[in-house]
């Protein structure tokens, strides 16, 4: 065999060897998040945009979706549930009644609401933020402050302002630990061209990093929270709290709903 043929053979062998080294035979790390059974002493919060979209038109929570949403929430057995896209107080109360008589529900501002069966939960929320619902309560003797928001779906500038103002208000509140969650409509995924979805990706990057510098992004690396393949729903947790488990629970949305519930289990460090 001529030297050229040998060289070529060596190159083919080297290419195969390199691709074999480069191949990743490990099981994919992206197994869907499955909420664990809640351990004693662990606080479980859930945020869920229970609206949806049909033929490209967004809609808020539909009465027909309430039973499926209630089933999912009952299975999660959360302490406090933060819902978005519920501008109808009566529908929110219907959802709470479907969960049981010991559940209370109220709307914050805009389309945000809270459902809880935890006693002694105090309502709060900054008036200057349009869509929000917040709570404060004592957890193992220390006060926890939680604020949920539903940021604008179409304007990155509006999102930046709403998130910033909500964050300022949250930091102004006294409390040993802080949690900021909700549908923030930001997607700054490492591996996507998110400008296809945002009118100003730079503004979204700014908004996300303002949060990421101050909190731990509990659902980071846990995959998309909304259709199509987007991570829009977040739970940012202050460093006094340990994240026991967190992620979007897939397979629970129904009909034209387009978000998954995001679960976060916490305890004090």
């Amino acid at each position: 065999m001529k030297s050229g043929a040998w060289a070529e053979l060596l190159l083919w062998v080297a290419a195969v060897a390199l691709f074999a080294v480069g191949a990743d035979f490990r099981a994919p790390d992206a197994s869907p998040f499955e909420p664990p059974k809640r351990a004693p002493g662990v606080l479980r919060l859930v945020t869920w945009n229970v609206g949806g979209a049909e033929n490209g038109t967004p809609h808020s929570l539909r009465a027909g979706h309430v039973p499926a949403v209630a089933d999912a929430l009952a299975a999660l057995d959360a302490d406090v549930v933060f819902v978005q896209e519920v501008p109808d107080s009566e529908l929110l109360r219907t959802l709470a009644r479907a969960l049981g008589s010991d559940w209370n529900a109220w709307r914050g501002r805009g389309d945000c609401g809270v459902i809880t069966r935890r006693p002694s939960v105090e309502r709060w929320g900054p008036r200057r933020v349009r869509n929000q619902a917040g709570v404060r309560f004592e957890l193992d003797g220390r006060e926890l402050v939680v604020l949920s928001t539903h940021a604008d779906a179409f304007s990155a500038k509006e999102r930046n302002e709403a998130i910033g103002e909500a964050l300022d208000a949250l930091f102004d509140e006294p409390g040993a630990g802080k949690v900021f969650l909700g549908d923030l409509n930001l997607d700054v995924d490492l591996d996507k061209k998110s400008e296809l979805f945002s009118d100003d990706l730079h503004a979204d990057v700014e908004s996300y990093n303002v949060l990421a510098e101050r909190f731990v992004d509990a659902g980071l690396g846990r995959g998309p929270t909304a259709e199509p393949d987007r991570r829009l729903d977040y739970a940012f947790v202050s460093r006094e709290l340990e994240i026991v488990a967190a992620g979007p629970w897939l397979g629970r949305r129904t009909g034209t709903m387009d978000h998954h519930p995001v679960v976060v289990d916490l305890r004090w460090r």
């Binding site: 070529e8 190159l11 083919w12 080297a14 290419a15 390199l18 691709f19 080294v21 480069g22 191949a23 990743d24």
Partner: peptide, 17 residues
């Protein structure tokens, strides 16, 4: 990094072959 580096060199070697 090793996996990705090997893939890059694998493509380079393939095209060279």
């Amino acid at each position: 990094a090793l996996h990705d580096g090997a893939r890059v060199l694998g493509f380079a070697t393939l095209f060279t072959a």
